[in-house]
Design a binder for these strands. Structure first.
Length: 274
DNA sequence: AGTGTATCCTGCAGGC
DNA sequence: TGCCTGCAGGATACAC
């Protein structure tokens, strides 16, 4: 899915469009995408005004004037598509929820596979939900020491730990795999066997990869688009993810694909010894 | 506690 | 061209 850099790019795009706009009406076209009863979902939002748009982990968070949060988890193929006209934005191919704005305009939550979820959270629910997620990897408080302590408390493969949103919020398969390549750590390494040096390298690598991907506007492999319709560019900078059989950019050894935890990982046998 | 599996969906690439 | 299979950036629930 959209991971942290994609959610960040989407949030930044909407932050230039939504704040100050009001919600005239909400149409739920695909009921399985909203949490709870669809009518209730829409009615509770009508008349409210967008205050700001941000991100938590890989979720886009729209803050309304009464403190309500509309939290969008984009699943694998979720997109937020703004349109100038009153109806479904023309770039929306699989609209699931429409937010009709006062004064014209519309934002569609669009999702081909509908693994995404849109939920409405009260301030109290928001606090509880946000606390259930791990730290933001790009925040100041996410230090090498903190990562080290996180790693030391788990025996699971480090790639699995990086994907666990309760431990760290925002990394997905692409950026976890890339960070491990930079840190020269095998994806299957038990987290608690990564020493202090490895933890420091991984901390640096994860932040480096996420920051570079934010700068590139995310990674577009298939569906991902920013709200302005632009593709991300970070796929040009991938060193391991999706490069099975192609030479490692560091040592020329062919990149291997391994599968565990139900998903593919990519690594260099020479640079990332197991 | 950790791991494998299935599930929710659709689209697309590759093999034949 | 068409059919079939496998695979996909995620999250969760379940059994072992």
């Amino acid at each position: 899915m959209p991971e942290l850099p994609e959610a960040e790019t989407i949030a930044r795009g909407l932050a230039g469009v939504l704040p100050g706009r009001s919600i005239r009406a909400v149409t739920v076209l695909r009921e399985d995408v909203v949490a709870g009863p669809p009518l209730e979902f829409g009615e509770a939002l009508e008349g409210r005004r967008f205050r700001e748009v941000g991100r938590r982990g890989k979720n886009v968070v729209m803050v309304l004037d009464d403190g309500t949060r509309v939290v969008v988890n984009l699943g694998m193929t979720g997109r937020l598509v703004p349109g100038a006209g009153p109806g479904t934005p023309s770039a929306s191919t699989h609209p699931a929820v429409l937010f009709h704005l006062g004064g014209g305009g519309c934002v569609a939550y669009d999702d081909v596979r509908r693994f995404g979820r849109v939920r409405r959270l009260s301030p109290a629910e928001w606090t509880r939900w946000s606390r259930s997620l791990g730290p933001e990897p790009l925040s100041r408080s996410f230090t090498g020491k903190r990562l080290r302590s996180l790693l030391s408390r788990s025996r699971s493969p480090v790639r699995s730990l990086l994907l666990d949103q309760r431990k760290i919020a925002g990394a997905g398969n692409i950026y976890a795999v890339e960070a491990l390549w930079f840190a020269r750590i095998h994806p299957r390494t038990p987290a608690n066997e990564i020493g202090e040096g490895g933890a420091v390298r991984l901390h640096r690598a994860l932040r480096r990869v996420l920051r570079a991907a934010v700068s590139a506007g995310g990674t577009t492999l298939r569906n991902y688009r920013a709200p302005d319709g632009n593709e991300g560019l970070f796929q040009r900078q991938l060193h391991a993810y999706g490069r099975e059989g192609r030479p490692c950019t560091r040592c020329r050894t062919p990149i291997e694909r391994i599968v565990f935890g139900g998903r593919s990982a990519f690594c260099c046998r020479r640079c990332q010894p197991s």
